[in-house]
Design a protein around this nucleic acid. Sequence first.
DNA 1: GTACTTTGTTACAGACTATTACTAATCGAT
DNA 2: ATCGATTAGTAATAGTCTGTAACAAAGTAC
Lengths: 415, 415
Amino acid sequence: MTMPVRRAGSDFVAPARQEHVRAHNLGLLLQRIAADATPVSRIELARATGLARPTISRLVDDLLTGGLITEVGPDRSRSAGRPPIGLTLSRTGPAGLGLDMRTGSLTACIVDFTGAVRHLEFAPRTHPVTAPEQTIDDLAAIAKNAIGTAAAQGLTVAGVTLAVPGPVQDRSRVRFAPAIGWRDFDAGARLRAALGSDEVAVAVDNEAGLAALAEWHASDRQLRNFVCLFGDFELGAGIVLDGELLRGARGWSGELGHVTVEPDGSTCACGAKGCLQEYAGLAAILAAVPDAEQRSGALSHQTPAVTIGVLADRLPEVRAALARAGTALGISVGALINLIDVDTVLLDGSYSLLATWLTDEIQTQIRDRVLTARWSPVEVRAAPIGPDAAVIGAALTVVDDVRRDPSTWITRPRS
Amino acid sequence: MTMPVRRAGSDFVAPARQEHVRAHNLGLLLQRIAADATPVSRIELARATGLARPTISRLVDDLLTGGLITEVGPDRSRSAGRPPIGLTLSRTGPAGLGLDMRTGSLTACIVDFTGAVRHLEFAPRTHPVTAPEQTIDDLAAIAKNAIGTAAAQGLTVAGVTLAVPGPVQDRSRVRFAPAIGWRDFDAGARLRAALGSDEVAVAVDNEAGLAALAEWHASDRQLRNFVCLFGDFELGAGIVLDGELLRGARGWSGELGHVTVEPDGSTCACGAKGCLQEYAGLAAILAAVPDAEQRSGALSHQTPAVTIGVLADRLPEVRAALARAGTALGISVGALINLIDVDTVLLDGSYSLLATWLTDEIQTQIRDRVLTARWSPVEVRAAPIGPDAAVIGAALTVVDDVRRDPSTWITRPRS
DNA sequence: GTACTTTGTTACAGACTATTACTAATCGAT
DNA sequence: ATCGATTAGTAATAGTCTGTAACAAAGTAC
């Protein structure tokens, strides 16, 4: 049994101290309490974790005084003996704030410590998508407002995470986001400066990975190995292996949209030929919608994915474009599964709204092209959350960090 | 700082006890001692790990009595003060035995605790490649002989690992190996039975991952994120992220050979169309060699890769086939890097012998197709070890397991 | 009300590491 | 050659964890 205590991004492996045992066990308990929807008693925790009952009591005391969990009155409906005291995550524990930008709007989301969404807000854009500084400043204004709203509900925001459609370095610098034209922009630094306060931790991350985190929580952490396809005009994949987000060497894994489907296909915005983006990106599918339809009436106020969904029922050329997209997605996701071996594919973001027209084609390609698919089938389905998954996931990262290592949040009083 | 104590393949997260602190620190020390080629003193370990000097002394005592490390006489060439006592890995510590099968031969390899290859043996095949039972029995005979050879050198073999060209379940059952026609055969069980003894741990693993492990050791664990292309008639990829082999949900990641290159390409042995295998597999390249050359003379006794290498200098059609292979490899590896983000590509196995004709094409495709390649270049080069990497890696897994968690090997006497 | 049963806590022992003070072994100047 | 300076390694003891065993608390069943 190993105990790798690593600092991310460094080959420095830290020594273990006794306090790390406690830190680990605190996290273990908290994860366990979070896992069950119903309150858990100390003795159930002891049985589930294998720790001794007195140890559980001591750890639980720390979590209680730290405000991370709450006792719920004794449950009297048992058979004999002293009734157990239930423990649940505290609704007033540290909350997370997620930020997100879409083609038409800026989004903020507040999630409390139980993982429940307490606030979800859409603000219209006042600047073009291609203006990074102004966009971040607007987001910071929304964030400040959201933090106020949270305070009014008795919540303390412990951190802010911004979702971005492209690879992010060191959870701060946006390297390249073709869909919005950002290139090498330190969104984290700008956001930190705009927020002013040093109270909250600021992070920036790829939206697909964040969406995967949200869907993982939505599944009550039952999904352990899956890939989450997220995006609208930029397609990315959030890969979760053994309950852990796969970040890659430098943090920019999951660029599914730029996997080659046809080596000699059309040229993508990234410069390469035949990227998945060119077949399954929202822009590629929209290109099949006749101009007359695009300009006409009520649909133009909907998001592109909804427009496509409505038109697919009516126009065969839209259905054909969706079939092409599905095939291309299937080929690329097949490559991903051959390489990384996950057992579930979630269609998220805009693709969750188009799942009806996509799943069959993707399923077929996977069945044909994945070596191991014949004896271990891969499940393909729409993600339960959908387009809001990235903001929610962004907010959840904050909560998740505290849950994984509560010792950083709890400042235990010395006796 | 988290301390994830997990059992692989299960969502059970174990509680931490004090003994795990020691186990972790023992591993930490051993890794540190292994990292430096020159002997390390206790005080250097203290500085490097951050542990207190007395703690180091106690841990080192355990490693010494466990026979994992050795003291080398004081180094007198220092300036002032008591000279430090050097510590190195013990050459007589637990050794590993690797087994491997190739088209023409069966291979065994013994590696001592320092990672040095002490024995490498090639035996001709006496049965067709497609006969799993006989092949395993032959390998067991070779293994027994090798264990004897090791004993004669004063080495104790702690475990045996068999390298297999295909996905392996639970480190024992071969699910599907197209190149040799094996399907759903529990090689681990057969090998355990044939070896008789319960003394040695038996494991079966994918050859590409094992090769990656060997190359990782050969780089003195300097490579932290890379992919290792390995194979001859079956191509696989061993993916290492942050110094850890990526195994995937069920253990069968890295099936690069069956990633789609041309959606409508020729049909592969696996049933799919346009697999990389069909362009870059050794069989595909060999198909370009004229029949006359294949039958003629001295070359036929060489391995296929050597044959191709020799003919490439003479025949343009062979060079063309290699160029095609390189392009296809570049496209597939590009997909891998877009998805997983590694910074180095090693051409191993047969491909290490053909690197001269492949690297440029692969490099070009990666530069064109990987989104992040423009600001963070990917290195492509021949792997230092080559075709023997899988057997050596197989033997190294045994040593590596003990090195990562020496506490299981050391049975510390109670005071 | 008494016995029984189950939950949670207190008191003390065992297993670690850190701190502090010590011993060991060498160099260099006198 | 001897004494100090310097560096390496080791006891002795304290602090921080968890585990074990005994105990207190709070119910049900009769």
